[in-house]
Design a protein around this nucleic acid. Sequence first.
DNA 1: GTATGCTTTCGGC
DNA 2: TTACGGCCGAAAGCATAC
Length: 365
Amino acid sequence: MTNSRIVMHIDFDYFFAQIEEREDPSIKDKPVVVCVYSGRREDSGVVSTANYIAREYGVKSGMPITLAKRKLRDVESVFLPVNHSLYETVSERIMNTVRSFADQFEQVGIDEAFLDVTERLNGNFEKSAELANAVREAIFLKEGISCSIGIGPNKIVAKIAAGRKKPNGLTIVRPDEVQQFLSSLSVRELVGVGRKTEKVLHSLGIRTIGDLTDYKIENLIEALGSSLGTFLHNVALGIDESPVKEKAGVNSISRMVTLKEDTRDLEMIMNQIDRLTVDVYSSVTEQHLDFRSATVLVVLSDLRMRSRTRTFENPIEKLEVVQKTTRHLLEQVLEVESHSFRRVGIKLSNFLKKQGQKRLTDFDS
DNA sequence: GTATGCTTTCGGC
DNA sequence: TTACGGCCGAAAGCATAC
């Protein structure tokens, strides 16, 4: 018995493609590639997910559909368009099953979740494998979907563990194994370490999480600031106190489309922007959210991305105000950018916090 | 100088 | 040889407040 938490991370295997296999089992022994078709021309678009047979041929998420077809040209394979509403429905049902196994539950995206199971295991790590297998069995019996599970004393370790053995894997990292487990991993594996932070760490001779343990916390803070420096120092020691907690709600809602062809024609683009604005505005309104910010997103002909945001002091209420704002933001992007536009999108964000939440501006100087 | 929040870009799925 | 979505939160960079 220890006083350590027991945290589980669940990751549904090749989720979209696995659901398609379940819908039509006759495709299971072939490569299955789930695609987002942009509609621009036949086969333009990218791969969303592929099953493991397709992955053996080098097919990966984010790859152009045409390239995936080339890799699979010699083998009978199945290309399907994404059916997002189906995946949402299945995800919701699985999440409800998973939630019933947790003291605390936190969904991450459509196919991942954290469970704090400390209490129901009385803090006994040795019983965690049994519980993990019970969860996997419940999901498989109810929904026919396999998943991979990682277990550790905190979220960071559980998440990394879940990625070690896939598909249908289980990886348990006991408290006394944490530092050994983390030490050889790249610092890049950690949430909080992006490209720039990785570069700073490399300049200090730090490449792995193990390398971090040789560094004094003061030096990490000096190089990276107190927040990130303290975080990394703790992680290297296997410490992560972030709780498993249901998220309050989304931070933003956005819609994006690929234009029929690259263009800088204001009216042509405005047409799409207006449609997207109505669409995203109704979605936000249906969810009874108040928002203060509107953003225009643009992908240029060379696939670089640009955006412009306007934030109001008070919630935006009228659709006409959003439309006027997004039109203006679009004109701004057109002005500063000479390339033509390939895709455009709208994002609404800065949702108002519900009453009773701690105020962010409580100074005591 | 450091903390905080906003804007823009990056990157995972 | 090229090829190329849609959504989200995280990361990075900057401005401002203390």
